[in-house]
Design a protein around this nucleic acid. Structure first.
Lengths: 219, 219
DNA sequence: TATTTTTTTTAGATTTGCCTAAATTATAAT
DNA sequence: ATTATAATTTAGGCAAATCTAAAAAAAATA
């Protein structure tokens, strides 16, 4: 079966939301996709006809097995292109998301497999998100946001938020990158900011907003 | 100004046709794009509103300076991606056209400039067609088809037809590639076939159809 | 439990890009 | 110069993907 760009964007958005929530609502989708709820209802009816999701009026939506496979194909393309843009074309992290949103819709399966081979079968994109293999399998990294990390619990930075722009600049300045070992030394309830220790460096302060956009794997 | 994929395909088709013909007709366009003449009329009216071409009902169409610039941007992207697909992803010549037709519509200007840089600023795509630079300038190679070459006139193979599939196979078998020196020794009026000499090899026979899809620059 | 608020769906319109069938204009042939 | 043919445009329609406004259903609150 073949999907339009609009359909692929809905499938991707449903997949993303159902990771957190299992059952995805019309309103959540309309916020995610910057469209009106009425447009979402229309599209869900169309995608239901294509038998890639379970949708009951008023009760939300969920991708079925076929739908998940399609979603993982789109995510695979997106992340491979992000890797290409950063590793080969030397883009900054925060510039690649928008471009990869376009490239991910180029549908040739042979292109994807050759690109994967050309890139050396990378396991994760530049933000640390795992790249599904050609049959849709993917390492389920159980990372949490740095903001959720317990105090005194050492962890490794494993990713950053894909969608937020301006992150690379601040992370470069603070000398944080994927693989960096971090530990929360103190937490301020007043504004949600944290103080963290990196190697032997002096303590540094991160805002709540920043900590929420950095992902870590506890050790 | 921003153009849809459909609009970009029309602009590209008009540009291609007006290379040969200057004034492009509705029927030529409908044949080129595999649509009905009525659809072409619709689109020409819309593109005229966008002021990128001169169109008078019943008298054909012609891109203006702005239109040509847009066309050369699309062609630049198409040919850079073709180069990438062949040189980096190791696709065969004849497989890349369809994929490049999709990639060419990805619109980030920075992507195009970085891709160009990554590829080493190639001058021509894998079929020998020149790649316009970022301001739309392009080497105007004055090649003709091998079929049009005069007998006993030495020439260098400078390109092959972009759109035709299966060419690489037959060219590999006959040991012809871009840069090969050729000369027509005999021409058969009966079926339009020709006999050519390549270096010190024995004469080989090419069908009219094949000769029309190989381009040469006379010496 | 009844009422209010929020969420979701339905109904009806719009734009893009295409179609078919009919009308119009240009070109070629007698 | 008329007539026949070919090319082009107009008119009216359709599907995809969106919208607004109104109606209906579900959830929250009094």
């Amino acid at each position: 079966m073949n999907f339009s760009i609009a359909e692929e964007n809905y499938i991707k958005a449903i997949w993303r939301l159902q990771q957190a929530d299992s059952n995805v609502t019309t309103n959540e989708l309309s916020a995610e996709l910057q469209t009106k709820p009425a447009s979402v209802t229309d599209m869900l009816k169309r995608l239901k006809e294509k038998k890639i999701l379970n949708y009951e009026p008023y009760y939300g939506v969920k991708l079925n097995a076929d739908g998940k496979k399609i979603a993982l194909g789109i995510i695979r393309r997106h992340r491979l292109w992000e890797y290409f843009l950063v590793e080969k074309l030397k883009f900054e992290w925060d510039a690649v998301h928008v471009i990869a949103e376009e490239l991910e819709h180029v549908s040739s399966p042979e292109l994807v497999e050759r690109l994967d081979h050309f890139l050396g079968f990378p396991k994760a994109d530049p933000h640390g998100d795992p790249i599904p293999d050609s049959s849709g399998r993917m390492e389920t990294s159980k990372h949490i946001s740095l903001h959720q990390l317990k105090e005194q619990q050492p962890a490794i930075v494993s990713g950053v938020n894909d969608q937020s722009s301006g992150l690379p600049e601040i992370l470069r300045q603070k000398k944080i990158s994927i693989g960096t070992k971090v530990e929360i030394k103190q937490r301020f309830l007043f504004d949600g900011s944290i103080e963290i220790k990196i190697r032997n460096q002096p303590l540094i302060t991160l805002s709540e907003q920043l900590a929420k956009n950095i992902y870590v794997t506890p050790l």
